[in-house]
């Protein structure tokens, strides 16, 4: 296994762990953090696989995609955190109600 593959597999693991946290935990802060773990996993896969160039030159395109992806993730996280605060002040809890009870 090459180093790039090891990083990519770590990225897959982060992706899965993040999705687990997103589904499993009720608190919105944990959900938002889990979403960021998921994102970090995806970005790690993209960046790690860029290292497998023919003659050792990393591919700049995936690296640029990761930078764009990170900016988008920052924007989404900022929006989600503010929305979380609004939910918490409107309902008294930073959690989502059980959809089955709605």
């Amino acid at each position: 296994m090459t180093g790039a593959e090891l990083y990519a597999l770590t990225g897959i693991a982060l992706f899965v762990i993040g999705l687990h946290g997103l589904i499993r935990y009720a608190h919105l802060m944990r959900k938002i953090l889990a979403l960021n773990v998921t994102g970090a996993g995806v970005f790690l896969v993209v960046a790690a696989l860029a290292e497998r160039g023919q003659d050792g030159t990393p591919d700049p395109v995936p690296q640029a995609l990761v930078i764009t992806g990170i900016v988008v993730a920052v924007a989404a996280t900022g929006l989600a955190l503010v929305l979380m605060l609004r939910v918490a002040s409107a309902t008294g809890r930073a959690e989502l109600p059980d959809p089955r009870s709605e």
């Binding site: 990519a8 497998r52 591919d59």
Partner: peptide, 18 residues
């Protein structure tokens, strides 16, 4: 499944480096 997919990617990476 995803780990298998990653490991099955072609060795000499296709890309746009050149």
């Amino acid at each position: 499944m995803l780990a298998t997919a990653v490991l099955s990617l072609p060795e000499d990476g296709l890309g746009l480096a050149d």
